[in-house]
Every structure is written in C-alpha cells, then in structure tokens.
C-alpha cells in the first residue's frame, strides 16, 4: 500500500470506521458509496465497537514479502458484532486456544515492518477477550 492509500484509510485501520446504511440499517465496513445489501447510497459514518468472534482462522507458514519477520502468524475472518466480517491477524494468542466462535477484540498493532516506501504500517489486529476473573 502506498503512503497516500495508508493515509486515506487511516480511520478504517485505526478505529474500524464504517457506516450504517440509512435505508436498510445494515452496518458496512469499510465505507462504500453503494450499500451492498440494498444498493441504495450508503450512509453516515459509524465506528464499529471492535468486538466480534472468529468465523475462521489459519496459521500461515508461507507469507509474502513484508511479513517474513512475523512468520508464522494466524489470520482470521472476524465477524464483528455489528455484522460485517473483516480479514485480520490474531495476536496475543497461543496456538492451542484459537477456535471458531472465540470472542475477540480489536487492537492496534504493527502490520508490517516495511511498506512499499519503507514506512512501518500499523492497523487492526484482534486478540482474545477473556471473561472478568480469568
């Protein structure tokens, strides 16, 4: 991702800013011009809570350039409590505890050491949520 693209998407990557469709009330992430649910013009900005659960996960051993230092890592599809699904890494986990349905919350972490222009890229990852007292 270029610096311009990172700057444009900063509200999405740092605070999961999406939208609520004014027509069908469905949550949308990231923001779109057209609602994917009802095809009407998509609506006002809405920041997601950052809470969700693991829909699926994979531990990746072959990784692309820019991610070699973190290898291996666990990717997940996280179903946000508002409805949208996001693709993100899991963090602060041990291998054994990852399972489908596990509650997780968003945190901001370093995504890759070096972007296309040498910058460090930050963005959302998800970590397990533990019940109080755990």
């Amino acid at each position: 991702m270029s610096i311009a693209s990172l700057w444009r998407t900063r509200q999405q990557r740092y605070s999961l800013e999406g939208e609520i469709c004014p027509e069908c009330r469905q949550a949308i992430f990231p923001p779109r011009d057209v609602c994917p649910h009802c095809s009407e013009a998509a609506g006002p900005l809405h920041t997601m809570s950052g809470r969700g659960e693991v829909y699926s996960y994979t531990k990746m051993f072959n990784v692309p350039n820019g991610f070699l230092a973190q290898r291996p890592y666990t990717m997940a599809l996280v179903k946000l409590e508002e409805g949208p699904m996001v693709t993100a890494q899991l963090t602060d986990i041990s291998d054994e505890e990852v399972e489908i349905g596990m509650p997780v919350e968003m945190v901001t972490r370093k995504l890759r050491e070096e972007g296309d222009s040498g910058e460090i890229v930050y963005g959302y990852k998800f970590r397990p949520v533990f019940a109080a007292g755990d």
């Binding site: 999405q12 996960y57 890592y73 990717m75 693709t87």
Partner: peptide, 15 residues
C-alpha cells in the same frame, strides 16, 4: 483490506 493484513491466496482458501 485483505492483502495489507498479510493474507495470501493459500491463506484465503485455508480460511
């Protein structure tokens, strides 16, 4: 929203 997070094609199919 996918590749920027480090997922590959194998990764997507694995999910």
């Amino acid at each position: 929203y996918e590749s920027a997070h480090g997922v590959t094609f194998v990764g997507l199919n694995a999910l």
